[in-house]
Design a protein around this nucleic acid. Structure first.
Length: 582
RNA sequence: GCCAAGGUAGCUCAGGGGCAGAGCAGCUCACUCGUAAUGAGCAGGCCGUGGGUUCGAAUCCCACUCUUGGCUCCA
């Protein structure tokens, strides 16, 4: 392989070729199989097959063995330009390939790649020889169903996902990363730390927050409210259901009904659980004639919404049917838009940094083909978004035409401790609802004008954010969020009373501190606190009791040792205020 | 919704036509302990739900339901 290739290019080739090798292995087992597509993807590759029977996990081992044998043959990858006619002949027994050939543009050079006995329709590129693939640097991971061309109406194929790297070491590191993801899985950690649950019998996709989860949420919400207050927001509380009039006016019944819970009938009227908070905030806006002097209005709400998600897509806290958005709507004049967007963006970055997320990527989505509203407004809005990003010197990707039909937006994706990206924040213009509800404000010149409306959710939803937060920290929350900030561990029952006093004093000072007065031995208590990822363990015995002190041990295993109770309280206060991890 | 794998004690899991199992957690008792598990005992189950096959079903078959991995990466 040429040394001039970047690492990305090399990996692309390795993964692509490995996918072909896998297809050959599968064809050895199922000579009559139809093959679909097999591209390289992030961290690996996949290939889709139409097979006479369902694959079993054991099949993967068999396929992998065969792949190693093929790779060991050090086969050259040969490219041949064949033209559509010839391609049709070669793949006459491969219906999916024929469809691909049919859909290829006329001016494209149709080529095949051959490795060993396997010929595939492929534009490449590939490695030059399978000698470049280390037999221990790839691994097949999972079997999945996938629709041909991602279309639910087309046949369901069987997809095999694999991962492939340049060296066995990289493969091992990748597998370790996958193991770490599994270890931090918020569903697992949520159970171990007693944070939340779901109940299939009581309704799938609905979250129950246990006391310890609720403590964390409480800490998040307290912080969130305080920041919004100083950030110039007012808070609202609005109902959970609304009559069909509201949803007809908003347009949700026309465009969003399939995501809404079925209506309840009361007094010959239909009420729907809210999938969004916006129409309610608009109702409040409409209770007064608004002047330009009132604007901007920044109204926030931790609003719980319900949306129907198909059963197959529900996933722990990350994809649910009921969740609380940290929602806000900004109503402002066209002149204020630029300033307001900049404020929201700065505010978001401030919040993300407080939660320990420093890497944030921005995505700007502009006007799609089908859109409502005056193009001049779109331009102004889009420009304000772009300007805000540039003023903040944030790198962003442009998604031209990727906006919703009702307005352009900025999405922020945060990167977690494992390098995964999560889309959380959205700052979204809306040129639809102000029109539909005929919202107005009276401008300086005495004329009624249409206000600009911006939706924004920073954390997104409390549930989803909690899920990401759990995985980001692996359950070892920073002190200010930890459900139990410190556990007092008496060395023997004789010191239970003192332990209780210590815990009560710290609790009274506003901290989440508990004494472990179970009849376990000290070592077991420490182990338990450690497993619960409690930041601080305060060991107390005769020495500490005499000195009105505690002996500090951190969950990271450090032992600063004995310190006065007052000193520890100061220490704790500083850590909490500084939002320290430990 | 579709494909696949699953659902056995609170949790993690074994068993797979003939008495329902283990570890951890829980409870009781003893031990009175200095930085990651003291010991002994006890209790705990409609084997996801409904139907079928069978002398007999947690186990085999069917349906449903929930959970999990996917269904966006385009030769």
């Amino acid at each position: 392989m040429a040394d001039t290739l970047t690492r990305e290019e090399k990996l692309y080739r390795i993964r692509h070729t490995t996918a072909h090798v896998m297809a050959e292995a599968v064809l050895q087992i199922f000579p009559d199989a139809s093959i679909a597509i097999g591209p390289p993807i992030d961290n690996g590759f996949y290939y889709d097959f139409d097979l006479p029977r369902s694959l079993k996990p054991e099949d993967l081992e068999d396929i992998e063995e065969r792949m190693r044998a093929i790779v060991a043959g050090r086969h050259a990858l040969t490219r041949e330009v064949v033209g559509k006619e010839k391609a049709r002949e070669i793949f006459q027994d491969q219906p999916y390939k024929l469809e691909l050939i049919r859909d290829l543009p006329e001016d494209v050079e149709v080529s095949t790649y051959t490795v060993d006995t396997f010929v595939d329709l492929c534009k490449g590129p590939h490695v030059e020889s399978t000698a470049e693939i280390h037999p221990k640097s790839f691994k097949l991971l999972t079997i999945a169903g996938a629709y041909w061309r991602g279309d639910e109406k087309r046949p369901m194929l069987q997809r095999i996902y694999g991962t492939a790297w340049e060296t066995p070491k990289e493969l091992r590191e990748h597998l370790a990363w996958l193991a770490e993801i599994e270890k931090r899985d918020h569903r697992k950690v949520g159970r171990e730390l007693d944070l939340f649950s779901t109940h299939e019998a009581a309704g799938p996709g609905l979250i129950y927050w246990h006391p310890k989860g609720a403590r964390i949420r409480g800490a998040i919400e307290d912080f969130w409210r305080a920041e919004h207050r100083t950030g110039g927001y007012e808070m609202l509380y609005t109902p959970h259901v609304g009559k069909s009039w509201l949803w007809e006016t908003s347009g949700h019944l026309d465009f969003y009904r399939e995501n809404m819970y079925s209506p309840m009938e009361l007094d010959n009227a239909e009420y729907f659980a809210k999938p969004m908070n916006c129409p309610f905030h608009i109702m409040i806006y409409q209770t007064a004639k608004r002047s330009y002097r009132d604007l901007p209005l920044r109204w926030g709400e931790l609003g719980t919404v319900y949306r129907y998600e198909r059963s197959g897509v529900l996933h722990g806290l990350l994809r649910v049917r009921g969740f609380t958005q940290d929602d806000a709507h900004i109503f402002c004049t066209p002149e204020q838009v630029e300033e307001e967007i900049l404020r929201v963006l700065r505010f978001s970055m401030h919040i993300w940094s407080a939660f320990g997320f420093e890497k944030v990527k921005a995505y700007l989505s502009t006007r799609p083909e089908k859109a409502v509203g005056d193009p001049a407004d779109w331009d102004r809005a889009t420009e304000s978004l772009r300007k805000a990003l540039e003023t903040e010197q944030m790198e962003y990707e442009l998604d031209e035409g990727g906006g919703a039909f009702y307005g352009p937006k900025i999405d922020l994706k945060i990167q977690d401790a494992l390098g995964r990206e999560w889309q959380m924040t959205t700052i979204q213009f809306d040129f639809n609802l102000p029109e539909r509800f005929d919202m107005t404000f009276v401008d300086r010149d005495g004329r009624e004008k249409r206000p600009y409306m911006v939706h924004r959710a920073l954390l997104g939803s409390m549930e989803r954010f909690f899920g990401v937060l759990i995985e980001h920290y692996g359950g070892a929350f920073p002190v200010w969020l930890a459900p139990v900030q410190a556990v007092v561990v008496p060395v023997a029952p004789a010191f239970d009373e003192y332990a209780r006093t210590v815990a009560e004093r710290l609790f009274a000072a506003g901290y989440r501190v508990e004494a472990d007065l179970s009849d376990n031995r000290m070592n077991a208590k420490i182990r338990h606190a450690q497993q619960q990822k409690v930041p601080y363990m305060l060991v107390v015995g005769e020495n500490e009791q005499k000195a009105d002190a505690v002996s500090l041990r951190t969950r990271t295993g450090e032992r600063p040792g004995e310190m006065g109770l007052g000193a520890f309280q100061e220490f704790l206060t500083a850590r909490v205020q500084g939002k320290e991890l430990i």
